[in-house]
Amino acid sequence: MAEYQFDTEGVKKTFTFMNRKAPYGTVYALEVLETVLISAAFEQHANIVFADDGVYQLKSGHDTTEINMKNFSPTFGIIEMEKEDADEDDDIDMVWRIIVEKESMEARGLTEDDFKVEVEVLSAAELAELIDSSDCVISG
C-alpha cells in the first residue's frame, strides 16, 4: 500500500459539495464542511450547495446546548471568510459560491433572511446546469 503520488500541479477543478441533509440528526453536514475547508488549501473552485433539508444547515440560531452536540454553525462563518478572501485577493485563483436552491427554501417556508451567511439563491433549473458543469461532486 504505497502512497500513490498524484501530479496535481496546476490542476484547477470545480468541486460541488451537495448538502441535502438536516443538521445534527446525522454527522454528514459537519464532516462535509471539513472537506470544503481542506479544498481551499488546494485552491480549488467550489460550489457549496444547499438543497432539500440541507437548507436547515444554514439556519441562524442553532443552539445545541441541550443536545450536548458540537454546534458546527460557526464553520459557515469561516467558509464565508474564505470565500471573501478569494473574491478580494487577485492572487487567489479560486471561486467559491454558497448556493441555496430556491424551490427547497420556499418549500420549507424559509427566506434568505433566515440564513446565517449570505447566499446565492438559484432555481432548480439553474442549479441543475451548475451541478452538471462541475468536475467532482461530494455529498454530505
Binding site: M1, E3, F6, T8, V11, F42, Q44, C136
Partner: peptide, 15 residues
C-alpha cells in the same frame, strides 16, 4: 490500509 488527511481525498478528485 493507511491513515492520512482529508487532503488526500481532494487530491484524488484533482488527479
Amino acid at each position: 490500509f493507511r491513515i492520512s488527511g482529508l487532503g488526500q481525498l481532494v487530491e484524488a478528485g484533482m488527479g
